[in-house]
Simulated scan of single mutants.
Amino acid sequence: MTPTLFQRLLGASFYSLPDSVRALHGIRGRARYAGRATILRGRNPLGRLCAMVAGLPGAREDVPTTVDFDARPDGETWQRNFGGRRMRSRLRRDGRVLVERLGPLRFRFALHANNGSIWWRVVGVKLFGVLPLPASWFDGVYCREGEHEGRYTFEVEAALPLCGRLIRYEGWLEPDAG
């Protein structure tokens, strides 16, 4: 069986991750996960503009959340829904990095498995797929995936110089039985 995107990127360390994290990143084909999330947004007007351009959801507390996964051998599509506010991204592998296209930005992430979590760190960004932006601008952007009480958990932070926090969202997901 062909390894999934995250299995290829993380190699042997994938198999040391908690069950719920391995299950989510072991999806082949289509699946839906459901849970709850809390979303915080920054107050800086420039940060709010950047968040709007990127199509990021607004601040909400304990919002119903679903993620529809379409995992194919060449990459994955994630369609997030935060209480009616949708956010779509496309993920693929480029060598040893994960590439995520989100709005007009194309992020390159190094993934690291550590203490039962997957950490995403930005190693490159392109605007409109062609204009490279300094990776140092994105030192405040990260993702952590893990497990708590048997549920897959996520925490995403995006802060930029001069803009401050664009967004922070965190919550949990489990397979949707419905």
Rank of each mutant, 00 (worst) to 15 (best):
W78Y: 06
M87S: 14
E61H: 04
R60V: 00
F69Y: 10
R48H: 12
F82G: 01
L46I: 15
V63H: 02
G75A: 08
V53S: 09
L91S: 10
E61I: 03
F69K: 04
P64V: 01
L56E: 07
V63A: 12
R85N: 11
D70Y: 01
G75F: 02
I39D: 02
S89Q: 14
L49M: 06
L91I: 05
P45A: 13
R48L: 13
D70G: 07
G83A: 12
A71I: 01
W78L: 03
A54D: 13
D62E: 07
Q79F: 04
R43H: 10
T66V: 04
L49K: 09
V53P: 11
G55Y: 08
M87D: 11
T65P: 05
G55W: 09
G58F: 01
G75Q: 05
R90H: 13
A59E: 02
L49N: 03
R88W: 11
G42H: 07
A37N: 09
F82R: 00
P73S: 03
I39Y: 00
R41C: 15
R86W: 13
R60W: 00
R48V: 06
R60F: 00
G83E: 06
M52Q: 14
I39A: 00
P73C: 04
D74K: 07
G83K: 09
L49R: 12
Q79W: 01
V63F: 00
V63K: 01
R72V: 02
R60N: 00
R86I: 13
G55C: 05
E76L: 07
R41L: 10
A51T: 02
P45W: 12
